[in-house]
């Protein structure tokens, strides 16, 4: 619904008349300020990352990735994302489904809980897991007795990432699914479809673009998360460092070229994510516009 309103507003603003537009000078001033701000605070840092990364030549750049610690960090980041993203996609769809399509007690509490990771500082998110699974935490003695390592090991990093990235998919889907309602699912059921068939053939195709958008944002955060992961990782080189942690260590060791080389890889992933994201946005805006037309349609036959 929010997307629909946004689209309608955009359509309206395109029809702005002379009476409602600002003078050219004001317009250019505003646009110039916005673009200038973006250039200084967003674009320039991104460019600088690449400039510094290649500052000592291409061989130094490549050498940064040849290092075993760097490879481990990249692998750990990819593993973490490979676990966190699918798990949170499944949980996100389930949570959005429950919230949007059913009425039950405690629904508002669930909506609030979904938002909790956004409200809590990532550092605190990390500390929660240390308090739970750390050596002196609640489950610490039991875990130690059974020789299971969670904190300062991969499971802890995955858990912290799961926590931090939980809201992305659910937050994206809840308004979308609420706007779509449950009538299509109900008609699928009256036509003899099972719940499973209804989900795969009716619900999922309808939320496809919103879901992909949520997954992209979730993935971007899963790869880039620093705070929460930093608390639970223990910074063991070659073992528990993800890419963001590895970059920080290199930077603190004055290995600027290597730090920026790894950073450039992370930035590159982010840029790709943004490109995919804008494609998906464009695609889902078109779908939304079609839905909009449909809901405003009716009329003559």
């Amino acid at each position: 619904m929010a997307a629909g309103i946004a689209l309608r507003m955009r359509a309206r603003s395109e029809q702005a008349t002379a009476a409602t537009t600002e003078s050219p000078l004001t317009r250019w001033l505003l646009i110039g300020t916005a673009l200038g701000f973006l250039a200084v605070f967003l674009f320039l840092p991104l460019v600088l990352v690449f400039v510094y990364a290649f500052g000592q030549g291409i061989s130094a750049y490549l050498a940064a990735f040849a290092e075993p610690d760097a490879r481990t960090a990249i692998r750990l980041t990819l593993i973490t994302a490979a676990i966190a993203v699918p798990v949170n996609t499944a949980f996100g769809v389930a949570a959005a489904w429950a919230i949007a399509k059913f009425e039950f007690k405690g629904k508002n509490l669930l909506i609030t809980l979904v938002d909790l990771p956004f409200a809590v500082s990532p550092v605190i998110a990390g500390l929660i897991f240390v308090l739970l699974f750390g050596a002196r935490g609640w489950f610490g003695p039991w875990l130690h007795a059974h020789d299971i390592r969670i904190i300062f090991a991969t499971p802890g990093i995955v858990l912290a990432t799961l926590f931090v990235t939980f809201p992305f998919v659910a937050r994206e889907l809840i308004p979308l699914m609420q706007a779509q309602g449950t009538e299509e699912e109900q008609s699928a059921l009256t036509l003899g479809a099972t719940g499973w068939q209804t989900f795969w053939r009716v619900t999922l195709p309808n939320i496809k673009w919103g879901l992909i958008y949520g997954v992209i944002l979730c993935n971007a955060r899963a790869m880039g998360e620093f705070g929460a992961v930093s608390v639970v990782s223990g910074h063991i080189r070659g073992q528990t460092n993800t890419m963001p942690l590895h970059i920080e260590i290199l930077y603190n060791d004055y290995q600027f070229a290597a730090a920026f080389a790894v950073a450039s890889l992370l930035a590159f992933l982010a840029v790709i994510t943004l490109v995919v994201k804008s494609f998906v946005e464009w695609k889902s805006a078109r779908t939304h516009a079609a839905v909009e037309r449909e809901s405003q349609g009716g009329g003559s036959s």
């Binding site: 109900q186 008609s187 009256t190 003899g192 449909e294």
Partner: peptide, 20 residues
């Protein structure tokens, strides 16, 4: 019996066609 076993044809006010 659940909905899908009753073999009813149901037509909704707002059509509820599968939009995709």
């Amino acid at each position: 019996q659940p909905v899908r076993r009753r073999q009813v044809g149901f037509v909704f006010q707002h059509y509820a066609l599968f939009r995709h």
